[in-house]
């Protein structure tokens, strides 16, 4: 298991490099010029050349990407923003915790609301409760998040004046962004949980558990839930990953200085160091999250854990089993 963990971590490096190369190539060939964006329309050729040299943009494609990767590996430096001259690492250090907190809170609510509702919906299939929840989930999935965000701002912020409109100054400021961010995930998780739970509760072992006289809550909690967690974990993992990559719309509407906004501004300004730095971070997050979800699979499902078990341990387990069998015989 540890070998598997280390192997996956090491695989992160080529994945990040691969993503960097792809994104770098795309931005390199995208129309637009960061030097021109900064200098405007009245620059002299000499000034243009000087600034291009300062930013390293006078090198060719391989020169630029090579320099960037070399600086990253040798100095651990993401470089400085062309526009603001602020080190990328410094900006990420300020913005990433904001996005992380928003993502974690949203995912927390997705789990504590979506999972129980999905279970209830499955256990009370075709009831009024189930049908209503299905309708609500479909509406939440269909309505874009920016509409939900704006509507909630107008209702709770402007009309009722219960909650702040923007920023994250107080605990109340977190309510609307977290809720809006979580609603779509709640709907998806609820539906996924319901679907997998319905499959599981029709299995023979659930009938056996009921036949043994176990309480319904125990049947669901101890037998059904654990077996339906695999796809549910996938949804939770992907939801958290996407949010850590930056919820651009939520951050824009609620005026939150997070990673999403930073990346968006970098793209619009052709600020290559910003784009590259944030993309590397996002790639790393995706790799780590995928690894975490895979490890959680092993925690939840012993069959999967067995696959990760090394050859020696497997042989030892088989020997033990055989000796026990021999004893019995």
């Amino acid at each position: 298991m540890i070998k598997y963990f280390i192997k996956r971590l090491l695989w992160t490096i080529p994945v990040m490099l691969g993503v960097l190369v792809v994104v770098f190539t795309i931005t390199y060939f995208t129309p637009g010029d960061p030097v021109m964006t900064i200098l405007g329309t009245g620059y002299t050729p000499e000034r243009y050349a000087a600034m291009a040299h300062e930013f390293g943009l006078d090198k060719g494609y391989f020169g630029q990407i090579g320099s960037y990767i070399w600086n990253l590996i040798s100095q651990g430096s993401f470089g400085k923003s062309f526009a603001s001259n602020i080190p990328i690492a410094q900006e990420i250090a300020i913005r990433f915790p904001v996005t992380l907190k928003l993502a974690l809170l949203s995912t927390f609510f997705v789990v504590i609301v979506g999972l129980p509702l999905g279970i209830l919906s499955a256990t009370k299939q075709y009831s009024a409760f189930d049908t209503s929840l299905t309708a609500v989930a479909l509406i939440l999935c269909a309505v874009p998040s920016f509409i939900l965000a704006l509507l909630s701002l107008i209702l709770f912020g402007v009309k009722l004046r219960w909650l702040p409109i923007s920023g994250l100054d107080t605990w109340k400021s977190w309510i609307l962004p977290v809720a809006t961010n979580a609603l779509g995930g709640i709907a998806v998780l609820m539906r996924m949980t319901r679907t997998t739970m319905l499959e599981v509760i029709r299995q023979d072992y659930i009938r056996t558990a009921r036949a043994k006289g176990l309480k319904e809550s125990v049947v669901i909690r101890r037998h059904a839930l654990q077996n339906c967690l695999i796809p549910v974990l996938t949804v939770i993992g992907s939801n958290l990953t996407m949010q850590l990559a930056g919820a651009i719309i939520i951050e824009t509407i609620f005026n939150i200085n997070g990673m999403g906004m930073y990346l968006m501004q970098g793209i619009l300004a052709r600020d290559y160091p910003v784009i590259n730095g944030t993309v590397i971070l996002i790639a790393f997050i995706v790799c780590v999250m995928n690894l975490a979800v895979d490890l959680l699979y092993a925690l939840v499902d012993p069959r999967i854990k067995a696959q990760y078990t090394s050859g020696k341990r497997k042989a030892k387990a088989i020997r033990k089993l055989r000796s026990a069998k021999t004893e019995v015989e």
């Binding site: 701002l153 923007s166 609620f254």
Partner: peptide, 16 residues
């Protein structure tokens, strides 16, 4: 600074 002008105007409406 506001990324979205509508949010900025809502903050004006609410006195922020």
């Amino acid at each position: 600074n506001y990324a979205d002008p509508s949010t900025m105007f809502m903050d004006l409406e609410t006195g922020k």
